[in-house]
Design a protein around this nucleic acid. Structure first.
Lengths: 217, 217
DNA sequence: TAGATTGTTAATCGATTAACAATC
DNA sequence: TAGATTGTTAATCGATTAACAATC
């Protein structure tokens, strides 16, 4: 793998999609694939696939194509899936609970370490094997477990305060389901915003003005 | 509003974000805003804001700026928020339930018309005022209510079959939380893919290679 | 009127696509 | 070797940014 400096964010956004398709091919028992065949499956150009991959290294073989398993492992390494990042969920409302039992953190280089809520009625309730804890335990928990990623599932009103606490406890990466602009208020944080409301509005636009020109990420 | 032909998908993806920021400004009681001030709030260039808006019409006034309320209404019209699209949720597992009680469909030009699941244990359970129905009622329900949008919260295995049924029942727009590629298998459908797993992987990448170069949508 | 700020054209930048030599 | 397909350079396309005349 080449040193990964100055990779375009568009390339980065496509990596998980490559990883996903290669996983499917692997499950189907495919050993090799050409950029051309993959391009048809993914509905992007073969040129783009080769360009994207060559940002990180030459993973193919002329005249043959790409070995599915090796390529998938390379992309896994590029994303950093092996690192095993500890994750905590903040907010155990229905969204926090849905994330907890729908997302396979383990498949994505993460370990769900704990789920927290300020509502005493939820404390002790078990979701997907995890007991909801009081947010009062957060400081001690972070000191002991050193989680790296927080999933923010709290309402907008509490988002700022919760981020403030988490950052002081050493968390620098957020998977943000609230509409609070974390990176506008705090420096040196990694944020991935979900914005489901915006996603729905994009669909509403398409309902009214149907078009095929989607951004394929 | 100009005829909205050939609008770049990048512009479209930014519309909900403009709408959201203008909503916040409106709540703060702001009457007018310049592209320059809005650009600082949103962390994009003023040039981009003016270019984006002028795809649809000249909503500002030289020497003054933009009237917040009017501009917001214009964007609302461009997206088509007034249309009131009927929405059904397919799959009432924790994700379907979380969507049901976390997303304000009403604020986004939609009415949640029904939530369906094949699991008899869930039938009758009420979430956010909606009683989970059996999928056996789906055909009759669609004939009577004519919903336009389906939220797909079923597991990958059932996704294809469910889409097939829904399309036959006249649904052409999908908010897709499964990893099934609807638009690869069916023609003339509007699809907005959520892909939470990919979103998490993007964050994992950032954790390992922190960078500021995010795509600001 | 002078100042401010838009709407719009032109310039730049970067992403995507095409082409092809290298090579398995 | 001949055929296939990559890696990489060059060409194109389109998105973003800058500049400024129009105008409120």
């Amino acid at each position: 793998m080449k040193p990964t400096d100055n990779i375009s964010p568009y390339v980065i956004k496509r990596l998980p999609r490559y990883y996903r398709y290669l996983g499917e091919l692997l499950e189907e028992g495919r050993v090799k694939i050409s950029s051309n065949e993959l391009s048809q499956k993914m509905r992007i150009t073969a040129s783009q696939i080769r360009q994207d991959l060559n940002c990180f290294g030459g993973f193919g073989q002329q005249g043959y194509g790409y070995n599915v398993e090796i390529l998938r492992k390379e992309i896994s390494d590029i994303i950093g899936i092996e690192k095993n990042n500890k994750v905590i969920i903040l907010g155990a409302g229905s969204m926090g609970q849905a994330i907890c039992d729908n997302i396979s953190f383990e498949k994505r280089g993460c370990t769900l370490a704990g789920i927290f809520d300020k509502d005493p009625l939820l404390h002790g309730k078990i979701i997907a094997g995890h007991q909801i804890m009081s947010d009062e335990h957060l400081p001690q928990f972070c000191r002991e477990e050193q989680p790296k990623i927080a999933v923010l599932c709290v309402p907008l009103e509490s988002a700022r305060g919760v981020c403030d606490i988490l950052i002081k406890l050493g968390i620098k990466s957020f998977w943000n389901f609230s509409h609070f602009d974390i990176n506008h208020h705090f420096d040196n944080v990694n944020v991935e915003n979900v914005h489901l409301g915006d996603s729905l509005l994009t669909l509403v636009y398409k309902v009214n003005v149907p078009r095929e020109t989607d951004i394929i990420i």
